[in-house]
């Protein structure tokens, strides 16, 4: 087993852990962290699997860099929304609300 493949398998494992967290956890921040975990796992797979040119391949590096930027932006947006949501409702999860899906439609 090469080290690259090891990385990739670790990435897959991270993805699995993240996915489980994403689906099972209620707290919004925890879900966000779980999402970040999946993201890291995917990046690891990307770097680990893609060693094609007999040495370090620049393309996956560039991709992962871009991916990290996107993930940071998404995380920042999510944090802002969660914070605002917490300020307005005092809640940190979607649960414990009785009215179901969204209820009212905005104008």
């Amino acid at each position: 087993m090469s080290s690259a493949l090891l990385y990739a398998l670790a990435g897959v494992a991270l993805c699995g852990i993240g996915l489980a967290g994403f689906l099972l956890l209620n707290h919004l921040l925890r879900r966000l962290l779980a999402f970040n975990l999946i993201g890291s796992g995917v990046f690891l797979v990307l770097v680990g699997l893609a060693q094609h040119r007999g040495g370090p391949d620049p393309v996956p590096q560039a991709l992962v860099l871009t991916g990290i930027v996107v993930a940071i932006a998404a995380t920042a947006l999510a944090v802002v929304l969660i914070r605002r949501y917490f300020h307005l409702t005092g809640r940190t999860s979607f649960k414990a609300e009785s009215e179901g899906d969204g209820g009212g439609a905005g104008s």
């Binding site: 699997l49 999510a78 929304l81």
Partner: peptide, 28 residues
């Protein structure tokens, strides 16, 4: 609205990552 936005965001992010994982496998 924030609640709906957050649910949307989580769904979209999960979808994107699944897609990206597929891209990684193809690139590999």
């Amino acid at each position: 609205a924030l609640r709906a936005a957050l649910r949307y965001l989580f769904a979209a992010l999960l979808g994107s990552l699944a897609y990206l994982l597929g891209v990684a496998l193809l690139y590999g």
